[in-house]
Design a protein around this nucleic acid. Structure first.
Lengths: 191, 191
DNA sequence: TGTACATCAGTGAACGCGCGTTCACTGATGTAC
DNA sequence: TGTACATCAGTGAACGCGCGTTCACTGATGTAC
């Protein structure tokens, strides 16, 4: 059994990213110390060599969940910058709706965080503002339209995960996708 | 101490509506049998004269939370039918954002329910479809636009509850409110 | 380079606590006569 | 109308269970000499 410093750092990261995955899939409250450690192949006692408490982990897991989602989105657009419509299509895709543990974290965790303490809310606030700013840039500075776009995307993803009728869920995603894409001036004016 | 049948029915309703209030404020998982009974002035043991289990209560509380929200909305428009823009203004008001235990339940509970069993999802699905249909009627049959409107409203309310900066939260509500109101043909064409 | 020792990641038993649930009991309700 | 009795809403102690957390221990790591 190796307990080197390098392995410790690696284990900490494995615990954290598994916690982030669980948070995205089942909410922040679904993170349990025992189940978490078990799923990375460790026993619960060792948890406290990495984190001061469950609550400290949850705070970090929220950050990690948000960062993971953005990293994934940026990885997709790394080769060449993706168009506004490609971003919207990806966000409102069936694959994203069904990727419970994957996916971006804002939609999955927004109502959880809305009920949480101001510190957690501030962490997510920063990511929401960044998303609005990024959309506003795509929309050539229209912040109001960017807010509408982000709200519609987050709302649609959340609602599509409730609908049990797959056709209706798909239809909702498609309708909102087309609506948001049409907010882009270039696509409106066909420049 | 009176234990009449009339009082039993009244107590059951008090427990249920308190459970619905707690669900809207803190999520379905925030309902605890002990705290719930205490807050209506009873002891925990009596709970099982009214509900088979906590999980049975949660299912009913979800229905109640959804029904309460709609009852409140309908009460407002009882005197005279409210205009589309009045409905949107009310939904995206600061008062609604800040009414944690009051308010309508879809936005507060959608991500919780999205992770829940299909039965719970079907309960909320019905209310989502009804809301889309009602908005579509206001929008003269534009179901796609109604889906975009509902998504934007639910998303904006959820996100506005995360933002800690009150000015930005207000700005988000205003931007989405104006955007959604502009979806109504009459308001666009100024008939 | 080799040896002795301190460190500390990880183990697994044990802890207190809060939770949902059960149960024997109480006493007002409401029915049968 | 009055009396006896069964019912059952509500009480509060007790239960098992899972949870977060603690702790004595193990043994590989990595440093000091």
């Amino acid at each position: 059994m190796g307990h080197s410093q390098a392995e410790k750092a690696k284990n900490r990261e494995r615990v954290l990213s598994e916690a982030a995955r669980r948070a995205r899939a089942g909410g922040l409250e679904s993170i349990s110390v025992g189940a978490l450690m078990k799923s990375v192949g460790l026993t619960h006692g060792g948890f406290y060599r990495h984190f001061e408490s469950r609550s400290a982990l949850v705070a970090e897991a929220l950050k990690q969940a948000l960062a993971d989602g953005e990293a994934r989105a940026q990885a997709q657009s790394a080769q060449r910058p993706r168009s506004f419509s490609a971003k919207v299509r990806s966000y409102l895709s069936r694959a994203h709706r069904d990727a419970r543990g994957g996916g971006r974290a804002i939609a999955a965790l927004a109502s959880d965080v809305g009920r949480a303490d101001p510190a957690a809310r501030a962490v997510m606030e920063e990511r929401i503002e960044a998303l609005i700013a990024s959309m506003a840039a795509d929309l050539h500075g229209g912040e109001a339209r960017a807010m509408a776009a982000v709200s519609a995307m987050v709302g649609a993803l959340t609602l599509s995960r409730v609908l049990t009728n797959p056709n209706r869920s798909d239809a909702l995603l498609r309708a909102v996708r087309d609506h948001v894409i049409a907010l882009e001036p270039a696509s409106r004016d066909a420049v």
